[in-house]
Each structure stands twice: as structure tokens, then as C-alpha cells.
């Protein structure tokens, strides 16, 4: 069951999401009926072969209507277009994790407050 009748969802889903979005981010109100994650959890389901449509695909739940209505949204440039379980199945290590040792070197060279630190304590310096 959706959070409201189909007619109302078709007409007002964007208002519901916009309203809830600010409450969630700025006031930390979570677990409310209108939530993008909630939409995705129900409306993005794997087909018989176990694959799901991605946000750019014609078969994606949001895109199928938005294409027809000529609406361009950018929700999925940041938000996940699949339920959490499908993403957690991805191998995190294989997705090119950040190379920590090279970052360490860069941090040591360019960390700005190290200089401030030295100025403030008069005895501290970067360990190079």
C-alpha cells in the first residue's frame, strides 16, 4: 500500500517530497511517510533476471512518467536509485577505494593548520 491514493500521489508527490526534504535535513525529522527512500524501496524492484532499472532507464518508475510529462529531475544525481540492500551487495573494496597512503603524503604537505599550530605553539612542526 502506498502512503496515499494513486490520484493524490500522481498530483502531489513532489510537494510531499519537497516539504519532507527540508524537515529531514534541517530538523532531523526522519521516519515520516513521505520519503524518497520509501519510494525507492517499494517502486524499484528487481525483474525476473535480478536486475533493476536505473534512474536513466525508460523502465525506471520515476522516469517512465517524467519522460512523458517532459519533467527533468536531478534527485538521482545524489540520491540512491536502488534500495540499500542492492547497493550493500556491491563489493566496496573493488569500487576503487581511496588510496590512503598517497593521501597521507598530500595531507602532510598541505595541511594548513599545521602551520598555524606551529605559530601558536612555537615548538610544533610537520613531521616530514
Amino acid at each position: 500500500m502506498c502512503i496515499a491514493p494513486v490520484d493524490e500521489m500522481r498530483k502531489n508527490h513532489m510537494t510531499m517530497l519537497l516539504h519532507q526534504r527540508d524537515k529531514t535535513v534541517q530538523q532531523g525529522i526522519r521516519g515520516q511517510p513521505a520519503s524518497l527512500t520509501g519510494c525507492i524501496d517499494c517502486h524499484v524492484t528487481p525483474d525476473a533476471s535480478g536486475t533493476v532499472a536505473r534512474s536513466d532507464d525508460e523502465g525506471f518508475f520515476c522516469t517512465s512518467c517524467h519522460r512523458a510529462a517532459s519533467v527533468k529531475i536531478d534527485c538521482f544525481e545524489c540520491h540512491a536509485d536502488r534500495p540499500a540492500e542492492m547497493i550493500s551487495q556491491l563489493d566496496w573494496k573493488s569500487l576503487n577505494p581511496i588510496n590512503h597512503s598517497s593521501l597521507l603524503a598530500i595531507n602532510q604537505q598541505s595541511f594548513p593548520y599545521a602551520l598555524q599550530f606551529r605559530l601558536e605553539t612555537r615548538s610544533m612542526a610537520l613531521n616530514q
Binding site: 581511496i98 588510496n99 590512503h100 598517497s102 593521501l103 597521507l104 598530500i106 595531507n107 602532510q108 595541511f111 599545521a114 599550530f117 615548538s123 610544533m124 612542526a125 610537520l126 613531521n127
Partner: peptide, 16 residues
Amino acid sequence: PKTDAQWIRKVSLKNR
């Protein structure tokens, strides 16, 4: 590394 996001940096400082 030059453009990768870093939310935590490990930093070491030496007292000379």
C-alpha cells in the same frame, strides 16, 4: 588523491 573527498584526515605533528 588531489580531488578525492576526505572527511577524516590522519595528521601527525612532531615536536622538533
